[in-house]
């Protein structure tokens, strides 16, 4: 019974959390810049509106356009069910660390192809940048996750992220560093501020927006929803790392975990909007330096995991 309840809760989080989180980022950013900003649920309204619109398709595009959308959204929803991004999500047998990483790679593979599809230079340069960033970010994400997996001696992320009682306090730095590595990497992966500006409409500099330039109507709606879902999943994953660090210091009850794991996503969204208010977009050639910090955090986490793992 309680499992069904938890699945229902997970499912509703999956439906509404993405739009809400995007809304929070935009709203906070607007307030920080002394604007009123769009309503909190604007993203959801936009999605619904786009779903009902008709679409335009480039004459050059091939079947990749449709395949990208359906594969993107179906993999992303599967990922949301597999990844332990909420502490109350029931475990499945397939939430393996390496499987998740390569499912993300599959999404990216088709996204890059679809932006090369219409033969537009904007999309293609966005794709080229996306490929570059993912080359740099993928090691950071996999190392951060394997650091925490190494401390649990299993690559099944549900087991890794299960909140166990009596975690020693010495585990806290590991979780903190891994969480920081994941958060910094997900900023890059999600094309957020220091690397790419999600609000810009100067095609020459865009990454994420340029890749979606040729999509419209329901196609665009699905892609937007998928990328919002990716945002909450990645934030949720790094948020879970921070929660574990907290759990090492102050073991909270699992009921509190439900609230905490949702609110930490909101907290990270607020942090994102803060970053986007104070910082500027980096010059493209300097972007790898930002990615390097994510990798540093992951490497340090791994080092901590190895060093403490050998002793135990």
């Amino acid at each position: 019974m309680s499992t069904i309840l938890l699945w229902l809760l997970t499912f509703s989080c999956l439906l509404f959390l993405p739009s809400l989180t995007i809304g929070i980022i935009r709203k906070t950013k607007a307030r920080l810049q002394n604007r009123v900003g769009a309503p909190l649920w604007q993203h959801l309204f936009d999605t619904i509106k786009l779903l009902r619109k008709s679409e335009t398709v480039s004459e050059n595009s091939s079947w990749i356009l449709r395949v990208n959308t359906v594969i993107n959204i179906s993999i992303m929803i599967t990922l949301a069910f597999l990844t332990p991004w909420l502490s109350f999500k029931p475990a499945t047998s397939a939430d393996d660390l390496f499987l998740l990483i390569y499912l993300f790679a599959a999404i990216r593979f088709f996204a890059i192809l679809s932006s090369l599809d219409p033969g537009s230079a904007f999309g293609a340069f966005g794709a080229s940048r996306e490929a570059t960033l993912s080359v740099l970010v993928e090691p950071a994400i996999i190392l951060a996750l394997s650091a925490v997996a190494l401390s649990a001696h299993t690559s099944n992320l549900s087991l890794v992220f299960a909140l166990t009682a009596n975690t020693p306090i010495s585990q806290a730095p590991l979780w903190l560093l891994a969480g920081a590595g994941l958060f910094l990497s997900s900023l890059v992966e999600l094309s957020r501020m220091p690397v790419d500006d999600p609000t810009t409409h100067l095609e020459l500099t865009m990454v994420h927006e340029a890749m979606m330039l040729e999509n419209s109507g329901p196609n665009l709606a699905l892609l937007e929803f998928s990328s919002a879902l990716r945002l909450v999943v990645l934030y949720g994953l790094s948020g879970q790392c921070f929660l574990h660090a907290l759990h090492c210091i102050w073991p909270f009850a699992s009921a509190a975990g439900i609230l905490l794991s949702i609110s930490i996503i909101f907290a990270l969204a607020v942090v994102t909007s803060l970053i986007e208010t104070v910082s500027v977009r980096l010059k493209w050639t300097r972007a790898p330096e930002f990615v390097a910090y994510g990798l540093t955090m992951s490497l340090l986490a791994l080092l901590v995991a190895l060093v403490t793992g050998v002793s135990s």
Binding site: Y102, L116, A131
Partner: peptide
């Protein structure tokens, strides 16, 4: 593990390039 992840990312970049430039576009 890290290097393999890097290699995986590079492989994705490489094959999307190969497909994209030969089959897609005009």
């Amino acid at each position: 593990v890290g290097v393999l992840a890097l290699v995986g990312g590079l492989a994705v970049a490489c094959f999307t390039k190969a497909i994209g430039v030969s089959f897609l576009g005009r």
